[in-house]
Design a protein around this nucleic acid. Sequence first.
DNA 1: CATGAATGAGTATTCATTCAT
DNA 2: GATGAATGAATACTCATTCAT
Lengths: 190, 190, 190, 190
Amino acid sequence: MSGATPRPLRADAARNRARLLDVATEVFTTRGVTVPTEEIARAAGVGVGTLFRHFPTKEALLEAVVVRRLETLTADTARLAAGHPPAEAFRACFRLVVERSAGKQEFTRALADAGVDVHASLRESSDLMRARLAGLLAAAQRAGAVRPDLGLPELVALLVGVGTAVEHLADDPAARERIFEVVFAGLRPR
Amino acid sequence: MSGATPRPLRADAARNRARLLDVATEVFTTRGVTVPTEEIARAAGVGVGTLFRHFPTKEALLEAVVVRRLETLTADTARLAAGHPPAEAFRACFRLVVERSAGKQEFTRALADAGVDVHASLRESSDLMRARLAGLLAAAQRAGAVRPDLGLPELVALLVGVGTAVEHLADDPAARERIFEVVFAGLRPR
Amino acid sequence: MSGATPRPLRADAARNRARLLDVATEVFTTRGVTVPTEEIARAAGVGVGTLFRHFPTKEALLEAVVVRRLETLTADTARLAAGHPPAEAFRACFRLVVERSAGKQEFTRALADAGVDVHASLRESSDLMRARLAGLLAAAQRAGAVRPDLGLPELVALLVGVGTAVEHLADDPAARERIFEVVFAGLRPR
Amino acid sequence: MSGATPRPLRADAARNRARLLDVATEVFTTRGVTVPTEEIARAAGVGVGTLFRHFPTKEALLEAVVVRRLETLTADTARLAAGHPPAEAFRACFRLVVERSAGKQEFTRALADAGVDVHASLRESSDLMRARLAGLLAAAQRAGAVRPDLGLPELVALLVGVGTAVEHLADDPAARERIFEVVFAGLRPR
DNA sequence: CATGAATGAGTATTCATTCAT
DNA sequence: GATGAATGAATACTCATTCAT
């Protein structure tokens, strides 16, 4: 699906691309997706031309940022789940995903608004993440730690929703904790 | 409380103002707050000048939209709560708020951001809504239907979060129902 | 040339017209000719509609203001000249015209920029003023107080120029006086 | 004195900048400062974006125009004064300044307003010009060619005023000459 | 490959003037 | 006649994207 491997970049080009991604992630996160591309380029120490050579579109850059975040999150989720029994793994990963996605809703929203078929472009990494979540959920349900009637779509929706909720409680850790308690309590069977 | 009564508008002016608000609500909701003002004016069948006569700023228009939605919601919440015992009233209103705010980022954002730096008129209606929610919550807690350690900020965050979650399940009513079940279950004491 | 006498206005209409002229003079002078017409109407306590009924165009209002100022100036010049011998009369009127026109250049400039044929619309009152100046100049020259080779056009240009010059010395009366001394000295024969 | 040298522009960029300045000078002078920026850009054969890249604001463009004119005038004044004895130098430069500023309200306005609140770059070139004028005046006074009680402010005011006067006599060279005669005669001591 | 200058469609807002009330 | 709501052309400025250097 991802076709032929893209020709290996020259060392400096690769460095620029990486730097651009890092900077864009930082800038989009702290200042919103409306920052002019020029500013991102400047912050990365390159010209706009270079930015557009690597990412043909602002939207493409945003997408790349999201994909990379998703991939990292997927990997970290796998690592985190490895050492724990199903119930604990489920809860730990739930928290991880929520914390990571807090404040990043805007990204995907912007992508969707752009008219891109988000599912198509992110599908691959998104599918991997969903597969991992499905595994965690199934294991937790088998272990009797989560209501058996809960499907993957509901889990995803909950993750997004709880992410939004905790965003609004950024400066009250106790309150955030209570949100998790409520949701984890509600997820238990019966 | 809302200061001097603004001079009563001429019939046609009032009609235009109302139409503008209706159209803006619809357009902002379905297409986002980035729609050109010109488009809103056209959709309302008036010139841009008229729009700016009624709302001196695009932001002012957005604020008026949000305020009106908030006021309606507050009133409807009151009406809905009236006929029910605390536990039921709480749950019914929770659902109402969630359904109404689903898909209206601006709306919920405004609701939750109220503590920050919004304009006076928004602040006022937001405070009224929060007061109503505080009442519902307290009553439900007194009735033993909701964990006593849950504060108003958490309730608001949950409403916003569940609104977001439910948005992602727009076409699966059964799944949406399960989200509510999870949250309501989690909200019960212990 | 000014055609039929315009039908006598109703008392309130006449009052409105006068008030509008007064206010416009004040406002144009203090805040420049770019003030919105709406503001002038408000300051005069009438609606814009009324303003445009009396003066079909912003430009027409400005023109009326200028004409009235010219007429007043012409009359005052006559009065001032009456009681003095030619040389003194000339100098006194020179000063009067300069003081009155200081800071009002903008008016006529705006009119000219508007593409109106200023000469046509103001011709009448302008001609009266020029006639009076011509008389003063001729008398002063006959009395040997002013170089005989100076024409009316130069006198007018000097009046305008000195008006501009003293505008720039608004807060230094001694310096203004020196300007007058220089010009009056230069105007003497030889 | 004018801070760090701005990075040398690329050849084409420099050409565009210069062209923009030339065109703006011409257009502002002949049609006033209200011409749309778009028109200036078109006349210079570039897009608006280019105009705004070089001059971040319409006002900045105007300022650049004025500064450049002032600098040229200052240099030309120096050159002109060099070869003449004080009295002649004074008169020749007086004429030069007047001819150059005739019809350029913005220009003289800027010259005279310099004491007020203009931007730094304008202030700088304006100060240089004023210094030169002060030198010319002092020398002429020392040579006994100009009234010793005349200060720099009056000289500047006179330059501006005579510029305005001469503008009104654009098509009558003999009359213009008489204006100069009057003023130069008036400037002589006693 | 990198650069940053050029482009121009797009956007919020103003204001002279018209016209329904 | 008076009012002020409606109109929409006009204007300064932005920003994603292209392309000459």
